[in-house]
């Protein structure tokens, strides 16, 4: 099992713990990841607000390079995943966009025929690799760690093909199978506001407060995320949310691959848990103690 890896811009900076943990986890499980050569930004939600053809064509350059590798794409950022999937669908449908996208790609001597799939690593692990196989290779139990599984928006909407729009289960099932406890978490698909944290901070703080408050109410010890934008919003603004809403909140927010890595036997530093803004190394201490 091998994929063309599209890290996306965030995973080179604020989302680095996601990048490192994902590569290590996949390597341990024997899933190949080959980074797409010289990849460029997917355009996210901004480019498509300006000019759709440009947004699609720029995104398609990445798919074109992946197609040369003959490998389907693994896109860990929910926003990249959605935009690359959209482009892919248009090319696969063979509608007029397919020709327009290829005409624009042609200016760089490239083309894309639509032969690939675009997948999120959570889909790869749960649907293609299999939770049982992961459990077989786990070195530790999560020891009843109380987990708030946060899916965010763009992983399950509108493109998510492998899980429910309203009440997705893949994270719940994965971590339950590894000995964790997925707490009742009604905010699991609520929006974190994404870039609104830059443009309308008060609104974004309100959205993130609702999500974190739901995790606290479920007595979660950690929130796990599948997207670099959600992770940064939920982790980086807890002080300001506490100040705005008058309730202290301090809860670790980690990438699902970091927690999965701990279960597979990696140390907290190998999973970059020491690089989090909220002290998260404690999660692993708890986990080791319980399973020892």
């Amino acid at each position: 099992m091998e994929f063309a890896y599209y890290p996306g811009c965030s995973l080179e900076a604020s989302g680095r713990p996601y990048d490192v943990s994902l590569r290590r986890v996949f390597e341990r499980l024997g899933i190949g990841l080959r980074e797409i050569e010289d990849w460029n930004c997917c355009g996210a939600t901004s480019y498509i607000s300006m000019n759709k053809l440009t947004a699609y064509a720029v995104s398609a350059r990445n798919l074109s390079y992946a197609e040369r590798m003959g490998l389907s794409v693994c896109a860990p950022c929910s926003s990249c995943y959605t935009i690359l999937s959209k482009v892919n669908r248009h090319v696969r449908w063979g509608d007029e966009h397919r020709d327009q996208i290829n005409e624009a790609l042609g200016a760089a001597g490239l083309s894309y025929s639509g032969s690939l799939d675009v997948l999120h690593p959570l889909d790869i692990l749960c649907q293609f690799y299999g939770i049982e196989r992961i459990v077989e290779q786990s070195a530790r139990s999560l020891g009843g760690l109380r987990i708030a599984p946060y899916y965010g928006c763009q992983l399950v909407r509108p493109m998510g093909r492998y899980d429910d729009n309203e009440d997705p289960q893949q994270l719940d099932n994965l971590f339950r199978a590894l000995g964790g406890e997925a707490v009742p978490f009604p905010a699991k698909v609520r929006c974190c506001g994404g870039m609104l944290m830059t443009t309308y901070e008060n609104i974004a703080l309100k959205l993130n407060h609702a999500i974190l408050a739901a995790a606290v109410e479920g007595r979660a010890e950690v929130v796990v995320t599948t997207c670099p934008m959600c992770q940064l919003n939920l982790e980086g603004y807890q002080e300001r949310i506490a100040a705005a809403y008058g309730t202290p909140i301090e809860i670790p927010v980690v990438f699902f691959t970091q927690l999965l890595g701990l279960a597979l036997g990696f140390g907290p530093e190998e999973m970059l848990l020491d690089r989090m803004l909220i002290d998260s190394v404690g999660i692993s201490r708890k986990l080791v103690e319980v399973s020892a």
Binding site: L53, R61, Q100, E103, G106, A108
Partner: peptide, 15 residues
């Protein structure tokens, strides 16, 4: 390559 694609898409009128 990226700039050529952008310029071409803009020249095509975009969408």
């Amino acid at each position: 390559e990226v700039r050529a694609i952008i310029d071409k898409a803009v020249a095509m009128g975009g969408l």
